[in-house]
Structure formats: C-alpha cells, structure tokens
Design a protein around this nucleic acid. Sequence first.
DNA 1: TTGCGATGCGAACACTGTACGCACAGCGGA
DNA 2: TCCGCTGTGCGTACAGTGTTCGCATCGCAA
Lengths: 244, 244
Amino acid sequence: MAAAKSKPNPIPSVWARPQREPDQPALSRDVIVREAIAMLDAEGIEALSMRKLGARLNAGATSLYRHVATKDELMELALDAVAAEIHVPPSDSPDWRAAVTEAAHSFRATALRHPWLSSVLGQAGLAYLGPNLMAFSERLASLFIAVGFPDPSGAIDAVLSYTIGMSTTEAAWLSTVARSGETEAEFINRLLPAAQQAAADHDHLADSYREAAVRTADPVKLRDDKFAYALEIVLDGLALRLPD
Amino acid sequence: MAAAKSKPNPIPSVWARPQREPDQPALSRDVIVREAIAMLDAEGIEALSMRKLGARLNAGATSLYRHVATKDELMELALDAVAAEIHVPPSDSPDWRAAVTEAAHSFRATALRHPWLSSVLGQAGLAYLGPNLMAFSERLASLFIAVGFPDPSGAIDAVLSYTIGMSTTEAAWLSTVARSGETEAEFINRLLPAAQQAAADHDHLADSYREAAVRTADPVKLRDDKFAYALEIVLDGLALRLPD
DNA sequence: TTGCGATGCGAACACTGTACGCACAGCGGA
DNA sequence: TCCGCTGTGCGTACAGTGTTCGCATCGCAA
C-alpha cells in the first residue's frame, strides 16, 4: 500500500492525499539538464521530448518549464554543459603542436560522445555563449596568443573550423549508423554495394569505395587516423605563420 | 464565379464539381523539392511543414506522400538538389590553389544562400549520397588527384572539413540573425554589451570583443576576409605535401 | 465500355511544445 | 495561530506536427 505516487486523486480526503514523497532530489535546472543529456546520449536527438524527460524525472512535462524557459533554451544549456568536457592545455605548454592537437582531439572526442551536439551546433551555432563555451574560447585564445601567432583569431578559425567540420560530419555518420542498429562495420558492408553501383560512372569515387571495402576491419581507427592526418596538414599551415 | 478552388463540396451535382483546374503543372517530385527549397530559403527550416508546403502547391498535405516517402527523404532530396549549385573547377586548371579556393568559396556561398543546409548536414551528414553530391565529390577528387597530392583523400578532408566547419558556423549565425529580424550590424550592436559583460573576466575574449565593436561597419566583408584568410592557412599546409 | 493503376485528399491517430490556472508547501510577519 | 505571499508542481487544453488509411477520381490500355 505504499505506492499511488502521482495518480489523479479526486477524493477530497486528507488521508488519501499523495503526501509528495521526495523520491527525486527535487527538480532543478541542473538535474533537468543532466538528465536531458543522458537521454540525448542514449536515444538520440529526436527521441527527446519534454514529456519523456519529465517522466524520467518522475515529474509532469510542464513542471520543467519552471526551471527552463523553452526547449531550445534547454538544448543550449545542454550544449554548454557538455562544452565543459573539452580539455584545452594551459597556455604555457612547451610544445604548441602537441597542445593544439590535444585540444582538437578533445573537442572531437566530446562531439563523438554526444553526437546530437552537431545538430545543435548546426541550428544554434556559437552565437549565444554560455560560461563553459566562453571558458573554452578563452583558453583556446590564450593558448594561441602565447604561442605567438601574429593573427591568433585567424589561426583559431583554421584549426577550430577544421575540427568542427570533421567532427560534425563524423557525428552525423555515427548517428545514422546508430539508427540502423548495426555495428559500423556491418552498416558499411550493407551499404557498400549500393554505393559502388551508384558510383559506377565516377572513376575516382569508385576507386575510393573499392579501397574502403578492403579496410572495414577497424573503422574506428581508420577515422581516428583520418582526423589526425588532416589535422597535421592544418598545423603545418599554421607553423608557417609562426615568426622566426 | 470562377473561384471555389478546393472547398469541400458536399453537393452531388456534376455541375458543381471542382473540374480540377490545372493551375499548377501538377504535382511531381521535382516541383515539390523545388518549392520546399524556396520555402526553406524564405522562412527557415522550422517553418517548413508538409501541410504548409502542400498549401503552397494548391494540394493537400498528404498528397505529397505519393511522391516522397517521408519528410526526411524530402530534406535529403533538397540537400542534393542544392548541391548542384556548388561549382568545382575542372581538373586541368593551371593554378591548383585558385581552383581549390574557388571550389571552397562556391561551397560556402551555397551554404550561406541556404542556411538550413547546415542543419540538414548536422543531422543527415554525407552518408547517403545523392547524384549531385556524388558528382561534387567526384569533381573534387579528380581535381586533387590531378594536382598530384600523394594522399588526395587526406587533402580533401582538410580543405573540405575546414570549409564545412566555417560555413555551417556562419550559416547558423546568419540564421539567428535572421530570426531576430534585424540587420547583422544591428544584431551585433544589440548583443555586444551583454557579451562584453559576460566576458569580463576572460581577458583575451574581452579584447576580441572590444576589437569587434569597432568593426561593425561591414560584417559581410569581415566574414569574407576571415574565411579567405584561414583558408590560405590550410592551403599552405597542403602545398607542403606537394611533391617537388 | 470496362477495368486498372496512379494520383489526390479528408479524416484520423499519436505526438509535439507550450500557456494557463489551480493546488499546495513553506515562510515571514501580525 | 492565522494571514497572505511566493515558488513549485501539474492537469488540462490548444494549436500544430508527421504520417496512415481508405475512398474518390482521373487518364489510359484492352
């Protein structure tokens, strides 16, 4: 007889009243954002609805609106919360290439851990900066300034845009793979025949697909290597801009 | 008495029957996609609904499903249709830097002309390639191969990812500006005070905002220059990989 | 003329984000 | 002890969404 948590209770009796058992540590902006992120990670961006999120918190959907103005705002909060996971080495790092490389890899890792992030970035962009995104930008800026680039913002544009572009493309790919319910290798093998046929009269594309067909063994490492390799290209371009 | 286009007509009389005036060249996948793109360009991605699109075509919402399996598929078709606008110079271009630069600028211009594109890219990615996207990839590949890069796919990754990252970020920014109903300069000036206050204890960010406050005169040119500058960095990195 | 496959569409379903207003908890002051 | 106030939860409702289903109607082939 312990239950009867939140059923509608038309009987005006004090004894039947729900008594509001504090099963959750109450509702707050923080737990809402945290649980939203958990849901986004687990089920993807289109699976998140205010009602489902409320249910997960043992609350009604509209209760969330006491702590969050709108769903878009919630997404911005989630974006900023996740931005805290990106690690940027301190500006006095001895090896600037290693430092920038680590920052880029950390960004990518975060984007792949939360593939919905690329969708949010595509819509909201980096216009409204939350505290964590600001801190990220600041650390990145101080790193590039400390290195001594003559035009730090241009340098940041190059490496950050490359990182964003590569990461969001990968994240979108991983999302489609996840929606299929297969492993990445399975998904590739199922898609390759169609892709090869579609690329029949595109010589170079057909070549690259043929090549890809061979290396389906470890797609994760392949993506890692691709990212690292092209990042080196960008860093080489940066190095040329460095004085002396 | 010419009107009475598509009102419900309960009278079972031959003379009152609508007669199906062919005001539109009928419904077809092509006109649906074309009109969807027009709507996306004019009112943004969240303003497009199947019902509104149907209404624009003097058709019911559900009629569209005879030509398009789902809204997601429609978005993929729109993405591919728009990809046809990207211009990639022929592979026998004398100046490879100029050729790649033109391709990148054309990509960016297309992305900025259709800002919803960045949202679609963030969700669908480049996984399922339509014919136009395939042709784009093929032309890009043949260009890089003709130049003689030892690892063309790595080179493509570098410049294309940079271009995608920069363009989608800009497009997202332009979308937020458009939603505000203001010009870009107005929007910046309205936002700057808040941004500067929020960046109070981030020295380098505060600096860059102070700098930005001065140059609100021609934001378009400023973005153009930023894109071109960081692209040069990437191209410099590429040039190092070129034999002899 | 008959039949058939393709096309349009109204109604309906299961959802969505969110506004509104009521119910109640805790609390500071009378 | 009672009052009112403020902050929180939530049931209901509204306008809208993507999509399915089955029926009506069309042009065309037999």
